[in-house]
Design a binder for these strands. Structure first.
Length: 1095
RNA sequence: GGGGCUAUAGCUCAGAGGUUAGAGCGCACGCCUGAUAAGCGUGAGGUCGGUAGUUCGAAUCUACCUAGCCCCA
């Protein structure tokens, strides 16, 4: 009777995994984990919604398997861990995908195509890749509820977002302002930074050095304390590569820290620019009627002045473009053509390019815009959305020109007005539109913002409550980000997104924010549909939502602003929006907010991690999550980013097909996933080898012998651990240690340490416990007795407990082992994933663990010594001698000498007490204990200790208990605790191996008796090989025939050891016969022919 | 330009103040095998990125520098 199924041949992990997936599905195990008892309550997990507009790549697998592990672990720990899938469905990437499909690229084309049709295509595309994501998720064992997934485009989801926006508006946190964004005038669209980064090019732009005449009558204080009176010939010098922005010029920036200097030109113009500029300041002077290019930096300075002394000086701007009156300004009177334009301080002024005086046009640059706000400068938008110069009073002559084409006439006119110092060209790297190759402009456009800057303190404060893994994100990447927080621009002038529920009166500008569908219908006087969440009755997306209008008290009409919402807002709103809070699920939200655990890759620091945090703090004054595991990016084998362009993308499904999902999971856990990693199929295979293979082999070993002996779990009474073999106790202690350490590591989200512990345990299990316990399993039931039963009980317990410990990591093999060992029947729990996290209740005997470690070390050195002496393990040796640095270790050697004898193939193990014969004793200070006490004197003591004989010192210590040494006039006492005793071999010979605690000496003499034993063992070895070659059953009995052509020596060996040979090879007979020809081999005692026959 | 991470054996990575720096893979040599050649052991292989400092003592702490990666501008 075979209690256990035979294991499939080889290592068929991918196939097994498919079976397990089927098993889980059929039994509905995942659902059962949610409905089983959860004494610890809820453990809240949020799934960060992936954008399903691409095939999942390896990095996604990483996040999925990390997100899977902790919920599985917590479920076993007695929590209920709901896992609802979610999909991020809105946003520009989806739109671009559709644009490509339609072969269009501009907003105009989308509008011609029809927003309604366009958005329907976007909606449909959302589901194209969902299937691949489902397949991948299921295949890697990511348990998540896909049936009830939330989608950010769902009406309910959108309504919750509307509620949130209205809340923010009520609290004064939603407002409209300008923002400078890269803009393509041809396509009529702003570009995301990602798009901008794609298309930087070397390009030649105008380089204009322009003079700004100071108003006469002002005074400049020089660095020598004198006062320089300004007359009509003094100019500030500024540099620009975009002459067209001069039409919007409103100020000049200087650095208050820099020193500026004034030089006099040949034509008596006095020009002021920064001292110590790094690049030349070109100018033309006329020598004998010929223009000569000079560098103004070389001119003798007229005077020097500090930048701060220039601040507030008034000058004439180049073009008198009309502008709105300035009410509040830093300057009094505010800058104007009458009172003059002002010099202001700015920290972004540099010495690298230009003159150290920066021309400022607020609509066309981020620095410009901020300075404009700070100093109350006029904001003159001189370019329309199509990139043409507007028809404004003062610059009518340029109106209608494409902005780039305005450069020439502008420069021409300034030249005529003698304001150009120099005009040339400048080669630099500049962004272009990736669609139409036109140069981008940085342009101010209206945006809606969340005033996150006003919540900075709260955001920082709540961040302190988050446990970040790795820790440095908290103060580093995320903390720094919060400290430099700017207002969050949430509006996008696009189509496929959550419409921003802001309606404004076209006449008086009054703004209303709508917080629910009901409110919208009421406001607009429309009847509420029977089901407002049915998209056939009401779709909150564009263009339907744009049709809602109503009258303002001023007589104007409220119309929705055209913008949709930043998709990051969608995902950040997930904690409440996926529950349709506050319209539904108020209780559930309270229970499920904040999350206990989220995890995504590091790029989400400024993405989802931030938007979750920002919305949670601004709306609920709470962090959104308590623990956040931040994962590194998965790169290729060489550490390069995987990209289609480089052709180095590894398809995760291919790897899974080859090595299985458990192998892939194990690879990710083992290599600290919070660091960027290098990935390849080969590395996954390596990781699997240290884990899956030994695990499988252990199961295989157990299965073979349990089946031979008909051993069943629970068949006999449990033998108390105290009565079991030392090895049994040892492995159970190791198991307890493993269980406790893995628990601790997982509780603190430390994946790789936990995985390493498991790998180490497997090494202990296979290469020591099983290896040294084999004889007990081989023994027949009668002679094995209690020892054998004890071995079975122990190994079964260890393997079934291990199955539970590895369940969160590699759920497939864990389930397989659990089912294979029939733990489900024994414990009456259907699946390992429904089992409780194991506890190993034993009293640890620490000394046993230490002793066993020592024995393993002795064996290691003995093997090394044998190898040095070139004596095979098969050849028995007479004795080994173990020398220890600490006689308290001796008892372990005596107690476990049988293990050493078996492992090392030695007849006797001796302990040497006459150490001096073989080793020198060295005494070193215990730096840890003496260091703080002695300080610099430690060196002196160290020298002293090396100068004297170790043996004498130890003798003295044993007698006195404490020693006193006079060091530099001070008496120093120290006891044994303060010393480390090390031993080293007197002479390094081939038969000596060891370290500072234990040294092993082997007896290399091979007596004729030993040699005979060795030959007998060799014969056994060859017969075993032959059994294996013939694929004999492990229990198959055989008959051995042998024949030797030369002499009687081998005949003697066989005669002498025939019982042993028979026993070891399961032979019932061993006979001399000339017909033995199958196998021929040489031994140290001559050649022998052997053949075996099944009986 | 700002911020963050990383730098340890040929490769992938541990080690987080204690004096002989580790593991796995690869390589060389060898061994065992009635679970296992997708196994086991031994060996070679390191100025712990560089410089300076703190300390009795630094791979480990500090500063600066260099290189790679990531985020932001």
């Amino acid at each position: 009777m075979k209690p256990f199924k035979e294991l499939p041949k080889g290592y068929p992990f991918p196939d097994l995994e498919q079976e397990i997936i089927k098993f889980w599905k059929e039994r509905g195990i995942f659902k059962k984990t949610l409905s089983k008892e959860s004494p610890q309550g809820e453990w809240v997990f949020y799934e960060g919604p992936p954008t399903a507009n691409n095939k999942p790549h390896v990095g996604h697998v990483l996040t999925r398997v990390v997100k899977d592990l902790f919920p599985r672990f917590k479920t076993m720990r007695g929590f209920r861990v709901e896992r609802q899938a979610g999909w991020d469905t809105h946003g520009l990437p989806v739109e671009i995908e559709i644009e490509k499909k339609l072969g269009i690229s501009t907003k105009k084309e989308i509008e011609e195509f029809g927003i309604e049709k366009f958005n329907r295509l976007c909606l449909e595309s959302v589901h194209i890749y969902e299937r691949e994501w489902r397949v991948m998720s299921e295949r890697v064992g990511f348990w998540i509820d896909m049936e009830n997934a939330y989608f950010t485009y769902h009406s309910r989801y959108i309504e919750s977002i509307w509620w949130a926006l209205k809340e923010l508006f009520k609290r004064g946190l939603l407002f409209k302002d300008y923002k400078i964004q890269p803009y393509c005038a041809r396509c009529g669209t702003t570009l995301s930074s990602h798009e901008v980064a794609q298309n930087y090019k070397e390009t030649e732009d105008p380089s204009l050095w322009l003079l700004f005449p100071l108003l006469a009558g002002q005074k400049i204080e020089t660095t020598t304390g004198e006062t320089f009176p300004v007359e009509n010939n003094v100019y500030l010098l500024a540099w620009t590569t975009t002459p067209w922005t001069l039409l919007a010029h409103v100020g000049l920036a200087v650095s208050p820290e820099f020193t500026y200097k004034a030089v006099k030109m040949d034509d008596d113009k006095i020009v002021i620019f920064a001292d110590k500029l790094l690049n030349e300041v070109p100018a033309l002077e006329y020598k004998e009627g010929k223009a000569v290019k000079i560098d103004l930096r070389d001119k003798t300075p007229l005077f020097f002045t500090k930048g701060e002394k220039l601040v507030g000086l008034r000058y004439k701007r180049p073009f008198n473009t009309v502008h709105a009156p300035v009410n509040e300004s830093y300057f009094n009177p505010p800058p104007s053509d009458d009172s003059g334009w002002c010099v202001f301080p700015a920290e972004y002024v540099s010495l690298e390019n230009g003159s150290g005086i920066v021309h400022t046009a607020p609509p066309f640059g981020d620095d410009d815009f901020r300075s404009g706000k700070q100093f109350g400068l006029p904001f003159i938008l001189t370019i329309d959305e199509e990139g043409r110069v507007k028809n404004l009073s003062g610059i009518e002559r340029f109106s209608g020109l494409w902005f780039k084409d305005a450069d020439k006439p502008i420069v021409k006119e300034l030249r005529e007005r003698k304001l150009v110092l120099f005009f040339g060209s400048y080669l630099h790297s500049y962004p272009f539109c990736w669609r139409c190759e036109q140069p981008l402009i940085y342009l101010a456009s209206e945006n809606w913002f969340i005033k996150t800057s006003s919540k900075k303190e709260d955001l920082i404060e709540k961040n302190k409550q988050i446990n970040w893994i790795p820790q440095h994100i908290k103060e580093g990447r995320f903390g720094r980000w919060l400290e430099n927080i700017v207002d969050w621009a949430i509006s996008r002038k696009r189509y496929w997104g959550t419409p921003i529920p802001v309606w404004s009166c076209q006449k008086c500008g009054t703004v209303e924010v709508i917080g629910s569908f009901k409110e919208l219908f009421e406001k607009s006087g429309q009847p509420i549909p029977s089901d407002p969440y049915d998209n056939n009755q009401f779709d909150p997306h564009r263009p339907m939502v744009d049709r809602f209008k109503w009258r303002c008290s001023c007589g104007g009409t409220f119309e929705r602003i055209p913008e949709v919402l930043d998709a990051w807002f969608d995902s950040g709103a997930m904690p409440f929006a996926h529950l349709h809070y506050p319209f539904e699920n108020r209780d559930k939200f309270t229970k499920r907010f904040p999350a206990d655990f989220i995890s995504e890759a590091v790029d989400q620091t400024r993405g989802w991690f931030y938007t979750l945090h920002a919305l949670a703090v601004t709306l609920f004054n709470s962090p959104a999550y308590k623990n956040c595991v931040v994962l590194g990016h998965v790169n290729d084998e060489k550490g390069r980013k995987m990209s289609k362009r480089l052709g180095n993308v590894v398809d995760p499904m291919e790897v899974i097909k080859e090595t299985g999902a458990d192998a892939l999971r194990w690879y990710f856990y083992l290599n600290n996933p919070t660091l960027p990693s290098r990935f390849s199929a080969r590395l996954v295979k390596d990781a699997a080898q240290s884990y899956l293979i030994p695990l499988w082999n252990s199961i295989s070993f157990f299965t073979i012998y349990a089946n031979i002996d008909g051993w069943e779990p629970g068949g006999k009474e449990t033998i108390p651990l105290e009565e079991r073999n030392t090895l049994d106790k040892w492995i159970v202690y190791k198991l307890k240690t493993l269980r406790d350490r893995v628990t601790d590591h997982l509780e603190s989200f430390n994946l790789s340490s936990a995985a390493k512990e498991i790998n180490d345990f497997l090494d202990d299990l296979t290469n020591w416990y099983i290896r040294r316990s084999r004889e007990r399993f081989w023994a027949s039931v009668e002679e094995g007795g209690k020892e054998k039963e004890s071995a079975y009980q122990t190994l079964y317990y260890v393997l079934s407990t291990l199955a539970k410990i590895i369940a969160p990591f590699t759920p497939f093999i864990a389930e397989y082992i659990y089912q294979h060992l029939q733990v489900d029947k024994v414990e009456k729990v259907e699946s390992v994933h429904l089992a409780d996290w194991p506890t190993v209740r034993v009293e640890m005997e620490q000394s046993l663990v230490e002793g066993m470690d020592l024995i393993k070390k002795v064996c290691k050195y003995a093997r090394a010594a044998r190898q040095q002496a070139k004596i095979k393990i098969r050849q028995p040796i007479e004795k080994i001698t173990v020398i220890t640095s600490d006689s308290s270790l001796d008892k372990f050697i005596t107690e476990y000498s049988h293990l050493i004898k078996e492992e090392v193939n030695v007849l006797k193990v001796e302990i040497a007490h006459n150490k001096e014969k073989f080793v020198n004793i060295k005494v070193k200070p215990n730096f840890r204990s003496l260091g703080p006490k002695l300080g610099k004197k430690l060196r002196v003591l160290q020298n002293f200790l090396t100068s004297i004989k170790g043996e004498d010192l130890i003798d003295a210590l044993e007698k006195e208990g404490e020693l006193k040494v006079d060091i530099e006039g001070e008496e120093i006492k120290f006891s044994e605790k303060d010393l480390e005793i090390a031993i080293e071999p007197k002479s390094k010979t081939v038969s000596l191996e060891g370290d500072s605690r234990v040294i092993v000496l082997i007896d290399t003499r091979i007596t004729p008796e030993l040699l005979e034993m060795g030959v007998a063992r060799e014969i056994i070895h060859f017969i075993q090989q032959e059994r294996k070659r013939k694929n004999l059953e492990y229990t198959q009995r055989i008959k051995i025939k042998w024949y030797t052509p030369d002499g009687t020596k081998i005949a003697d060996v066989i005669k002498k050891f025939s019982d042993w040979i028979k026993k070891e090879t399961l032979a019932i007979d061993i006979v001399h016969s000339k017909s033995a020809k199958e196998l021929k081999f040489g031994t140290p005692l001559g050649e022998i022919n052997i053949s075996i026959e099944q009986i």
